[in-house]
Design a protein around this nucleic acid. Structure first.
Lengths: 218, 218
DNA sequence: AGCTACGTTAAACAGCCGTTCAACGGAAGG
DNA sequence: CCTTCCGTTGAACGGCTGTTTAACGTAGCT
């Protein structure tokens, strides 16, 4: 029932994820139904409404993310990242769906950013403990900043480069990584400014550094 | 003819910019027409089609940007930035329209990113010449990276915080700046990593540094 | 005055949308 | 065998979309 090959409802949901990822959430029910080889009426019969279908897709994608993340955590640590990057096209429909979600906003997008922020904060903590990452005055704010910037930059890049057509994803993703890696590493390794005067000036204006683990914003 | 108070077509265009900014480009012609106090037929009579109206809005917004940018360049340099930030709500409809353009893609969005990238590169060049910014191995790539990250991060933040309702803009913008400034300054001033091993490892794998002024990507 | 041109409206049109309904087919259970 | 249920279909409905068309009024020109 839960296997990949399974029932008609599963096939419809999978087709919806792919179609939503390609065309955005304005895609029609009839197009999705045609992709799944069924009729529009059957879709709403199984999922109640288009919004129900959307929520089912969101739940499915969120579940896949959690499963894949758990799989990554239990298995390798560093080299796994490269192999996962290599088989990124296997996750192309999922990533496209996620990008559309970020583009449209909504609960799944918010949850994704929360997860990205949480993960980033973990990595920052581990990196500081290992002595490879400089500590921040507000680790939570830094994690949130990094999550928004990286996800938003990728979203904007894919939006402007008109991603969506099948088969384009792997090439586009590779190009994006190629364009971004060096400037990002440069910025992370040496910063941008030669001294700290701008930062210190700002810190003089904002006199309260956060002290304990309380979050710095909602 | 070009003044703000002017003709009906101008009023329709202005209403369209505001409505597109609030509701996105899926907003109906009748809603725009009602905002302008006219009928839907008149809109298409003046602009040919909805796409014509959209193009007119794009052109108008682009013209406003160029005018405002020229005004900023000819007048003050640094303190002007703060006063301009203070009266940001005067440009709220324009910025909302721009965010919707970035969200949807298209020519205006691409042009905007090009302008941001070009400006960033100028600032980087000036900063390097003044000795306050560390030079990059690929200044164009760095400028493009910064443009995508900053614009994309802001776009994503506003998308997830459901901006669009009138009057919300100033508060939301202020909150975004407050959240982003410190982590960004920290990152720009000190970077993220304690040493350059990751950067050097990457530079070893990619043996060709760009040499002259030729762009590093299309 | 008559004519023309233009801004403007209201109504109608075709098309797509999500959703509803009645009916059909086949399999399962009594 | 008959019945009951469930997956599935095709057609229909109301509503919204962008666009077209005919008509109306008015201003300006001859």
């Amino acid at each position: 029932m839960d296997a990949t090959g399974g029932g008609t409802a599963t096939r419809i949901r999978e087709a919806a994820i792919a179609r939503f990822g390609r065309d955005g959430f304005d895609a029609g029910l009839r197009a999705i139904a045609a992709d799944a080889g069924v009729t529009a009426g059957l879709v709403v019969h199984h999922f109640g409404s288009k919004d129900g279908l959307r929520r089912a897709c969101d739940a499915r994608v969120l579940r896949l993310i959690r499963e894949e993340k758990a799989k990554t955590l239990t298995s390798g640590t560093s080299e796994m990242l490269l192999t996962q990057l290599a088989e990124v096209e296997r996750f192309a429909p999922l990533v496209l769906y996620l990008l559309r979600s970020l583009q449209a906003g909504g609960e799944l997008a918010a949850e994704l950013i929360v997860q990205l922020t949480t993960d980033a904060e973990k990595y920052l903590t581990a990196g500081e403990a290992a002595g490879v990452i400089l500590p921040s005055r507000d680790r939570a704010a830094r994690a949130r900043y990094l999550a928004y910037q990286s996800a938003g930059g990728m979203l904007l890049w894919f939006t402007l480069h008109g991603v969506g057509a099948p088969g384009t994803f792997r090439t586009a993703f590779r190009q994006y990584v190629d364009e971004v890696t060096q400037p990002a590493l440069e910025l992370f390794a040496q910063g941008l400014l030669v001294d700290r005067t701008m930062l210190d000036d700002f810190l003089m204006q904002v006199p309260d550094p956060p002290e304990d683990g309380s979050p710095s914003a909602s």
